[in-house]
Simulated assay, not measured.
Amino acid sequence: MRVPQLYKRPGWQRFFAGTAVGGAISWCIFLYIYGVWQEENTELIQKQQQEIVDLNNEKKIWQDEYKEINRRKIEQLTVQKIYIKITNAEKYKLDSLSVLETEDSVHDDISMMLAKDIDTVYKSKDLIKKIIENKQVKINDKRYKLKVKEMVIYTNLTIQLEIDFE
């Protein structure tokens, strides 16, 4: 069998030439469109990757800041220090060493309130008052009794005391 000779039929020659040229042109168009799409998608992927990295860094910063704020809030909501002050020591002409020792002994008695949350300390304020007022202090062979004049409960527990003869 023989392949027919197409050079004798110019219509077929034009058809095959047109399909070859059309195939080449369509292949070029396909490569151009595919290349443009690929380039756009590559740029989009790189942009999204950079955005993901930025958002992860921002998220980490927010989380660290949130943890730090929580840590500070927890510290603020607990009793950090206890201050005791006797206000009328001059009335009985007490020396400052005796007053300081008395303040220290009261501080030791209520030191259990350190690092407690403010709500617990507030609920225990009557107990603190009774602990202080039931304490008898002996200074220079005289017995004194303490009375709570003012109590401020916050991150620092501040107590002002008055001293009286028993």
Rank of each mutant, 00 (worst) to 15 (best):
I45P: 00
G18I: 07
R143P: 01
F15W: 13
L55Q: 11
I29C: 13
E43Q: 14
I118V: 13
L146C: 02
D119A: 10
K85S: 11
Y122D: 09
K129V: 08
S98G: 15
K91T: 11
N156Q: 06
G23E: 02
I153W: 08
I52C: 01
Y144K: 04
A115F: 12
S26E: 04
K142I: 15
D95M: 12
D108V: 10
E68C: 02
T87M: 05
Q160T: 01
R72C: 06
N156W: 05
D117T: 13
I132N: 06
V79H: 03
H107L: 15
K81A: 00
A89V: 02
I110R: 01
K129W: 05
D104S: 09
V21E: 12
L114D: 00
Y66D: 15
K147R: 09
Q46E: 13
Y122K: 05
Q48T: 10
K123D: 09
Y92T: 06
T158N: 05
W27Y: 10
W62I: 11
W62A: 11
D109F: 01
I86Y: 00
M113D: 01
N134R: 10
Q50H: 12
M113W: 15
N156S: 05
E150G: 02
K93E: 03
L100R: 14
K135H: 07
Q50V: 08
K130P: 03
I69Q: 02
F15H: 13
K81Y: 12
W62N: 12
A17L: 09
K59H: 08
T155E: 11
Y83W: 02
E51H: 05
I61N: 09
Y92W: 13
N156V: 14
V53C: 04
D119T: 13
Y34L: 05
K91F: 15
P4F: 11
K60H: 12
P4W: 13
E39W: 14
